[in-house]
């Protein structure tokens, strides 16, 4: 991670802190206790902004291309970021689409569609050409949601969303 990213993320943190602090004035002020309901969010926002500034100063004063602090051990952070990944974008789009669809057509249908789509997105090229893999994906995509729906309804007596169209 480079200096630019450090400054960018710190700036975002400061902006968030400023918005959060401003938003605290919308909270009704109470007198039931010494600190009141605004104190904690305001204190958190001030500290957050202060730490954002510390990060910017640290990034600016760090010598070389990147500071040692910035080498996060986390696997995502450690991976080399290479442009825009189509499966990544499609995965995020599918997650939001799931929320929209589940309201319309319910859990079972949405989950079947999601599993088919996401498995196809994540499938390596050789898998897409394999008839066996296609059958496995289709079977899994249909059986898993139906099984979950059955278990939750019959065993746990929990009704999963049926959607506006089927509910």
């Amino acid at each position: 991670m480079n200096k630019k990213n450090d400054i960018l993320s710190a700036a975002a943190v400061i902006l968030f802190a400023a918005a959060f602090y401003t938003g605290s004035f919308q909270i009704q002020q109470t007198t039931s206790d010494v600190l009141g309901s605004r104190f904690f969010p305001q204190a958190a926002a001030i500290l957050l902004a202060f730490l954002g500034i510390v990060q910017i100063v640290t990034a600016l004063t760090a010598s070389g291309k990147g500071s040692a602090e910035n080498n996060n051990t986390d696997d995502i952070g450690a991976k080399k970021q290479e442009g825009i990944s189509v499966p990544f974008i499609l995965t995020i789009a599918a997650l939001f689409a799931y929320y929209v669809l589940i309201r319309l057509v319910g859990f079972a249908v949405t989950s079947i569609a999601y599993l088919l789509f996401e498995s196809w997105v994540l499938m390596p090229e050789e898998g897409r050409n394999s008839k066996k893999m296609k059958i496995i994906v289709i079977l899994t995509s249909f059986l898993v949601p139906l099984f979950l729906n059955y278990i939750f309804y019959q065993v746990f007596k929990i009704r999963l969303p049926q959607g506006m169209l089927f509910g």
């Binding site: 589940i102 989950s111 498995s119 390596p124 994906v137």
Partner: peptide, 22 residues
């Protein structure tokens, strides 16, 4: 690629069932 989408469906289920709230 077969497991991860199933994990996500279980995650959706877990989030929904906590409060029955979409």
């Amino acid at each position: 690629m077969l497991l991860l989408p199933i994990v996500i469906v279980c995650c959706f289920l877990g989030s929904y069932c906590a409060n029955n709230n979409i």
